[in-house]
Design a protein around this nucleic acid. Structure first.
Lengths: 270, 270
DNA sequence: CGTACGTTTGAGTAGTATCAAGAGCCGTGG
DNA sequence: CCACGGCTCTTGATACTACTCAAACGTACG
């Protein structure tokens, strides 16, 4: 939305970009030329960098802040396709598939990005095929990641999916605090739900159960992992887990006192 | 598995490859050199071209037949990540992300593929960056497709997902017959289930209901769409549909007679 | 200080998975 | 050629996860 006039000098941009793995080994002159064709854009929290369906004329290189990329269903339901932090390129699909943006990018915290016009980037890649290969790597890794998520949503229970999402967020965007590992990106329960293909109610219930168990610390748009290993166990464990119980109703400790030990599937013995 | 000795001459291969969009405009000399570094491999139905976890030393270019790419969960559950036909490259993720194969590729019908060693392809791409750009397009499109599937599995009911899968298969691999549009690729109910993130039982029930409605014709590993538009309606329709009803028990026409008309969401008017 | 948003929690139930048989089709070997 | 064993598919009964609807609470913010 805000356009032009950096807030950063071209020289600084040059420093930042040349620090990214994507551009390693690229002559500064070429980089400078590329930057020169781009525009820096600021984007306050909550605002969209681009909208699903918009014609795409280039890509964004995220310089600062966090952005979530969401796909919206006709019914208004959303799914978070990707969460991006500094250094990550956005809008690649539209750029290379030569289509409108297939999803919207919304700043979750104040963000800054360098916009690069498609033609400029294309020319740059033709002159620097090694960068094209690195972009191929980026896309390959995202495809891999998306396949993994597809697998999870297809065959895992929500509980395990949520645990995995938290573990992943913590490892990608986590910061150590004295309480535990905090997720740096501010995400609402609803956004978390959109990350694991469920509803905010379900996320809320699960998180609170885990909080009661002392595994996490909850706040508004804030989650701290106090016992990451417990979540990892939940996320990966092959065998039926024990601590948390049913989703609705009874809290930990209550419930039909009979057959509280899982593990031997009830009603399977006879 | 079977190695070397084409079954096709190098000249024929050259013809085939230069017909693929991927290699359009590439000088025949370069192509010939590339082919020369590759190996043709045959793969009977049911056999794997490569296995998840195998170290990847190159990519496959599918020349003939159909291949399904499956990811397997620790518990043995499978999800079909992709179905590929002639002309499609396989193993791209492993190649560019520089990792072992993240999924297994199994021939669904007898297949033939050209194996290209990674280093050869990499060198080729550095010399022909325009081909790298086309590969970027391939990956971008697959990523787009996978995002769409993720959205669907996350928020759509099985019924609608299955309808979409069928419509998509019909449009990508369909062949007109006097009965309707037949899906060219032989897929079992279970494989269909793995394509839409459900179980074979659910697929079977839905398909049979649709067969009773006259929308499809079923066979062993075979499906013919007789009323594609009905399926498209089911797949896209925004409003609650009418024909098919609950999954278990009661057949079409039975059921609690009260409140059978859907459409006005109960309890939302006040 | 009120309003709005993010969140928690409850009750009820639809939609699917799961468990359990059984029926048809197919290639194989007697 | 026919019987057999193995797949693939169909169908029923039952369990249960996670969604939907509904309401209330707390906190941030104007």
């Amino acid at each position: 939305m805000e356009q032009r006039r950096p807030g950063t000098t071209e020289g600084e941009l040059l420093e930042v970009l040349s620090g990214y793995p994507l551009f390693r080994g690229v002559p500064r002159e070429s980089l400078r030329a590329l930057i020169h064709m781009g525009v820096e854009r600021k984007c306050p929290a909550g605002r969209f960098l681009f909208l699903e369906g918009d014609p795409a004329e280039g890509v964004y290189l995220l310089l600062e802040g966090y952005v979530k990329v969401v796909q919206t269903d006709v019914s208004g339901q959303e799914v978070v396709a990707q969460v991006a932090g500094p250094g990550e390129p956005l809008g690649l699909i539209a750029m290379f598939a030569d289509s409108p943006y297939p999803a919207s990018a919304q700043a979750v915290s104040p963000a800054r990005a360098l916009w690069l016009p498609g033609e400029a980037l294309r020319g740059f890649l033709l002159r620097h095929p090694e960068v094209a290969l690195r972009l191929l790597r980026v896309l390959a890794e995202r495809l891999h990641e998306t396949h993994r998520r597809l697998l999870e949503v297809s065959i895992l229970r929500v509980e395990r999916r949520l645990a995995r999402v938290l573990v992943r967020l913590a490892s990608r965007l986590g910061q150590r605090t004295e309480e535990g590992i905090a997720v740096a990106m501010p995400l609402s329960r609803e956004e978390l739900a959109e990350l694991c293909g469920t509803r905010l109610h379900t996320v809320s219930r699960l998180l609170n159960r885990w909080q009661r168990a002392g595994w996490v610390r909850l706040g508004r748009r804030r989650i701290v992992l106090r016992e990451p290993h417990a979540l990892v166990a939940l996320a990966e464990e092959l065998e039926p887990r024990e601590p948390p119980l049913a989703l609705t109703g009874r809290k930990v400790g209550e419930g039909k006192t009979v057959d509280d030990r899982r593990g031997t599937r009830p009603g399977r013995t006879e």
